[in-house]
Design a protein around this nucleic acid. Structure first.
Lengths: 215, 215
DNA sequence: CCGGAGGGTGAGCAAGCGCTTAGGAACCGC
DNA sequence: GCGGTTCCTAAGCGCTTGCTCACCCTCCGG
């Protein structure tokens, strides 16, 4: 049970999930969904990873989809918090964009198993859960767009197409969850730094002062 | 059967798939896999979309996985051809990078159902098929990296981390398949132009002459 | 010592899955 | 008209799936 020290997601999060057994099941589900995908994962597999019988799952969750919903909700809350915190800091647009991309990417890399479930299993949610999550995602989009348009207005950025560039920036960050750690040569911090630099170039800003661009 | 004029993939491709019924099944499988994912798609669903009985599928394909393999192989061949053609053109690095991103993105947008299967269902392939496909993907990576390193050597680009930037460029393009056409406000050509501009900025090049950056 | 509540299990149900098999319709050269 | 080939179907087999149910452990206040 404690054998897999591998899982980067044995982190302090999920602390809000309260009966201990419920949390173990949820962590097991995150691993299984990330590895094989939601539909390819069986409830027996999840229960087995948590060291329980298949029936135990249904004491804590009504359905397999409820598990996915809980994971997706908590993950989106965390990702959104990261972006909105960076977006509303009292700093220049370039600095805020650097922080947003850096921390957002770092989260996607460090918790790539969770992020993979969060970002790529949206369609498996029940319609009402899906629309709840989609609303959160629109706020992520708004946070990034706000930084970009404020940077343009302040003359810091040169961005011909703000909505399109917003989409591209988020897309670039999100896709980190797909490829990260297949054979990890980079740390989450390194990927965050690289991506922050690339995004600042995309919007026509010089790298933020103080954050050495490592040549 | 001819009811879904929606499918952007009723294009001349798949022409190499020859009994007509086999092609209809394959097109049906692309649609179903793209909509619901490989594991959530049933063989009955595929056969139904193609207007056939469930058993008909097994006349033309040995397993459901063989269908996925054929789709993945043909799609990767096409994507790779696009990249390698652009990479080996007799032109400056900036111009080749522009062409590569533009055409690669355009393909992912125009054929986003196919691209989604190609890019996001890799793990559903049998091990031997997976490694065959992974080899093709390494060649895509090599094609982009070649453009970047040649551009750096020629003094056209300013790229501190060539492998990392290669990864980011490909990642950015590939992720188009995930978000495109959820509510299509942009044409594949427009997305291609936008992304080509963004990537040229990422590598520190001015937009290629002749391709107006649309302000 | 007891009763009940919360957390767990073994066995299994109905439904749906990938895939097979026996057979038949349509077309072919002869 | 006939045998052969090609393409397809109706029926269904064996298995797995998500989920349920009857029952059984502790543990704990009185």
């Amino acid at each position: 049970m404690d054998s897999t020290a591998e899982t980067t997601d044995g982190y302090q999060a999920w602390s809000e999930v309260t009966p201990d057994a419920a949390r173990r099941l949820l962590v097991a589900a995150v691993e299984a969904f990330a590895e094989r995908g939601y539909h390819a994962t069986t409830t027996r597999d999840i229960a087995g990873r948590a060291g329980m019988s298949p029936a135990a799952l249904y004491i804590h969750y009504k359905t397999k989809e409820e598990l996915l919903h809980r994971i997706s909700r908590i993950g989106h809350d965390k990702a959104l918090e990261i972006l909105e915190t960076a977006a509303s800091a009292p700093a220049a647009a370039a600095e805020r964009l650097d922080a947003a991309v850096r921390s957002f990417v770092r989260w996607h890399a460090a918790h790539h198993t969770t992020a993979r479930v969060v970002q790529y299993e949206l369609d498996a949610l029940a319609p009402e859960h899906r629309s709840e999550i989609v609303a959160l995602r629109r706020r992520s989009d708004a946070a990034v767009r706000r930084i970009l348009s404020e940077g343009v207005r302040a003359g810091e950025f040169d961005v011909p197409d703000v909505p399109g560039t917003t989409l591209a920036v988020l897309s670039l960050c999100i896709d980190v969850a797909r490829w990260f750690n297949v054979d990890g040569r980079r740390t989450p911090d390194e990927v965050g730094a690289l991506y922050a630099d690339l995004v600042l170039r995309m919007v026509g800003a010089r790298p933020a002062a103080g954050t050495a661009p490592k040549r």
